[in-house]
Write a protein that binds this DNA or RNA. Sequence first.
DNA 1: TTTTGAGTTGTTCGA
DNA 2: GTCGAACAACTCAAA
Length: 471
Amino acid sequence: MSTAIWWVRRDLRLADNQALRAAMAQSESVVPVFILDPRLLASPYSSTQRNAFLLAGLRSLDQDLRQLGSRLIIHQGDPVEALTILRSQSGATAVYAEEDISPYARRRDARVQAALPLILTNGLTVHPPDLLLKKDGCPYTVYTPFSKTWKSLPRPVEANLLSKPTALNTPKGLPTLPLSFGPALSDQIPFKPGEAEALRRLEKFVRSTDLAIYQYGEQRNRPDIDGTSALSPYIRFGMLSLRRAVVAASQAIEEAPDKMSHKSAETWLNELIWREFYLTILYHFPHVRQRSFRSQYDGINWDNDTQAFEAWCQGRTGYPIVDAAMRQLQQSGWMHNRTRMITASFLVKDLLIDWRWGERWFIQHLIDGDPASNNGGWQWTAGTGTDAAPYFRIFNPVLQSKKFDPQGKYIRRWLPELSDVPDRYIHEPWRMPADIQIQTNCRIGQDYPRPIVDHASARKRTLAAYKLVSG
DNA sequence: TTTTGAGTTGTTCGA
DNA sequence: GTCGAACAACTCAAA
């Protein structure tokens, strides 16, 4: 009887899993394995809560596998060694895995491929990154033409998605580690791990009676409203395939009742394509993890004030929208997309701190932290990346706050010390007269920090620093 | 090869 | 208070 190993990495799902499908097609018996790679778990880019989410996700996958008569094998250690051991224990003839594109993953897979019969399948992206190219054969570096070509290619349809396997034959008696170890997921993390939860959320977003996907265009920018799909942690770990999300988006676009709804659903699809764009960029330009995509910006003379950086990390800059967002990140492991841009712009352009410092802090705290999207977002904000914001486009944290959190609901949720501050001063509490500061228990400089920089002068300093290297 | 049109997410200033 | 222009030219993709 032939046996194959299904090596789970960031595809913690049974439905629409091309690696699992390939393993099942080639073998009567399949061994699902996850390898806890100490190099990843202890990396300076790892996050305790993201690791906890992963481990909880593995427990959930193990439960799903038990229902099929199988189970998830856990190994700890170097992947080449672990797979070699597992191969001799199980008598497997091949290892199947979904291709990953990060520089570390590709080096690791090349090492495994040199030692073992490893077969990589597509599935992380809808269109493989080495196939979606310009007519001259080079990769796209601008989003709009990339997305046009992406949309011109055949779209996945529901019928083509593999339904969940109904049974999985796995050899018995393989040694495994218990999944009870490791950090626990904090109760403050508003994401329940697992494939079932991912699908429930997707259904709710695209089909619920409140038509969330059809209001996405307007509501997605409001951190005070639950207007986003909040699917990013699930897509990050493959509890939901990008392909399945695209199918849902395409159906919603087709069935849209009016023009605005149509546009909204199209906007959400574009967000999925942005994810694919940045995965493709990292695949073709791995140097972006170390340096600016546009090399002239490596010469920026950053201020890199460690005290200012610490204030930003801890949410003590004195700008409420920035501080609320940074506390949301630390407490809940997630941050709204609009405030990711606001806080990133503040770090880079108000504090003149190297975008890589912020990139690292985000990846150390985000449950959905993904090297490709995180790097793409930071380089976009810093103006150093592909298709980046022009460097003179500097967010004004007060205007952004007034525009996207008009009543200060988001601010008050994450900054209880500002809960009694009147609406009039909620976006810039340092303007409060002294008597109101006392009445509302919010003395600036004591209960809540004074702004650590003046936006107008910080803006001028940054424009000058960028101008020096651009041109 | 040269040319042409276009490019996620803004802000500030002055009329 | 509202509006358009300036920010600053540059790179990319495709004809």
